[in-house]
């Protein structure tokens, strides 16, 4: 465990946190950059996903396209864009947006499309406009899954942003690549643990949000359902 002691010593040395190349600045950049990527992906994918979920059309192509995007090796996409666009923050930004889109898209169409069609039918029969159905019925009921998609995208992006340092993307990954080159394993290990902690904290925060946005009426049902003994567990809703 000696390496871990050294890693923690490096990580908690205040001197390493200061300055424009310090842990503080790079951590902040990593977080802000990741959130900016997810925001970009959400702006693109959320409306499309909601539309697919609401109309039920275009789901198959969306599954195929997002599956193919996901099968794309991230490092390959990063390096191709870096060669095409030069070493700037733009190449990793675009690459990461592309990689984040499938999760947001799938969360949106699964969340909105997963709302019981009977409920949607009833809302329409009562005289809700399509917009009202989306905003007042599908959005609140599908929100936990939609946020689940964004949560998945955040994890993906925090991880890939680390890799993006390889093409000059900045952030915490910068330490990893310079440490690998110089053989500074305590630094590499310390920053790795910091990134893991960051990912888990963000994941936990989103998990909590997901729970909080479950509408009360739906939560109540889950509660009572748990009290009854259920011989066959209904398949967990996706997301």
């Amino acid at each position: 465990m000696n390496v871990f002691a050294e890693a923690f010593a490096w990580l908690f040395d205040p001197a390493n946190w200061e300055g424009p190349d310090g842990i503080g600045a790079r951590l902040a950049f990593h977080v802000v950059f990741s959130l900016a990527v997810v925001a970009g992906a959400t702006i693109v994918a959320l409306p499309i996903g909601v539309l697919i979920g609401h109309t039920g059309r275009g789901r198959e192509p969306a599954v195929v396209v997002s599956g193919a995007l996901r099968a794309l090796p991230t490092l390959g996409l990063l390096t191709i864009l870096a060669l095409a666009m030069g070493l700037s923050v733009l190449a990793p930004y675009l690459a990461l947006v592309v990689l984040a889109i499938p999760s947001v898209l799938a969360g949106a169409y699964a969340g909105v499309g997963g709302v019981s069609r009977t409920t949607v039918d009833a809302a329409r029969a009562m005289g809700m406009t399509e917009g009202q159905i989306v905003l007042r019925v599908e959005a609140p009921l599908g929100l936990p899954t939609v946020i689940g998609g964004i949560r998945s995208a955040v994890l993906q992006v925090v991880a890939t942003a680390t890799l993006a340092a390889y093409i000059g993307g900045g952030g915490l990954g910068t330490y990893l690549f310079s440490g690998l080159k110089t053989g500074n394993y305590p630094m590499v290990l310390g920053v790795s643990m910091l990134i893991i902690a960051l990912a888990l904290v963000l994941d936990g925060a989103f998990a909590l949000t997901q729970r909080l946005v479950v509408p009360e009426g739906v939560r109540v049902r889950r509660g009572t359902a748990r009290l009854r003994s259920r011989p066959s567990r209904p398949r967990a809703a996706m997301g």
Partner: peptide, 15 residues
């Protein structure tokens, strides 16, 4: 109905 790879990953992230 077929679940896409991304949906399965979402399931991993949790309900």
């Amino acid at each position: 109905r077929r679940r896409g790879i991304v949906e399965q990953e979402l399931a991993e992230v949790g309900a």
